[in-house]
Simulated scan of single mutants.
Amino acid sequence: MKRVTLTEIFLHPITQKYLKRSGVAHAIATAYHAYRLALQYGVDVDLATKAALLHDIGHYEWYSNGKWDYEKYKQNDIHAIKGAARAHKLLIRLGEHPHHAKEIALAILLHTDSYLPEGELKRKPLQMVVKLADEADEEPGGKHHYRQIDDKLALKKIQKLDEMVEKQMMMQKLDKIV
């Protein structure tokens, strides 16, 4: 089975539609944080960067009187649930290994606990990496969703991250052989 790249995922119309809604710059920054954290915690960089890139594709726009309503969003949001389902469907459609698509979807589902009842949630390492990566790029009042990035620069950053992931995966394969 071939590896579905971040570039393929990023360029897909579904991804473009929902990342533009939730913030392309935030998604890319979160994917880079996930790469770094995955190395730090011994988590699969391919799965971590994909989950981080797609973590907010379930966002719904909460507006009141034509303006973003952050409080309404915080009270009513279930973007992690919607995003997990969208990401899973997209990844399967692109040819991602079904087990990997499920792991990525679960990491997206659990990247936030804003919609969950109070209490501690025990996350697997991949899920924790995506949560920490998202938190590393957050700004007060949801401002991280509104940072802008040029389309060409965004694609270059995704392609560079793809190269980094590919190189890391090759190094891990070599380590297993040696």
Score class of each variant (00 low, 15 high):
A87D: 06
V129H: 02
E118G: 06
A52E: 02
A27W: 01
H99E: 15
R86H: 11
L91Q: 05
K102C: 01
E61N: 07
E120M: 10
K67M: 12
L91W: 07
Y70H: 10
V129E: 02
L91P: 03
V45K: 04
A87S: 15
Y115K: 02
P98M: 12
E120Q: 07
W68E: 14
L39I: 03
A107I: 02
K50Y: 04
W68N: 08
H111R: 08
W62H: 14
A85C: 09
I108Q: 07
K50P: 00
P125V: 03
A51M: 09
I78C: 07
D77N: 14
A107N: 08
A27G: 02
L109H: 03
K122F: 05
K124V: 01
L116H: 05
L126M: 11
A105P: 01
H79R: 07
Y63M: 15
A25E: 11
P117R: 07
A133F: 05
K72H: 09
H79M: 06
V43P: 01
H99Q: 13
H88F: 15
Q75S: 04
D134F: 06
G119M: 04
I92G: 04
K124Y: 04
E61D: 11
D44L: 02
Y70F: 10
R86I: 14
I108G: 06
K124N: 02
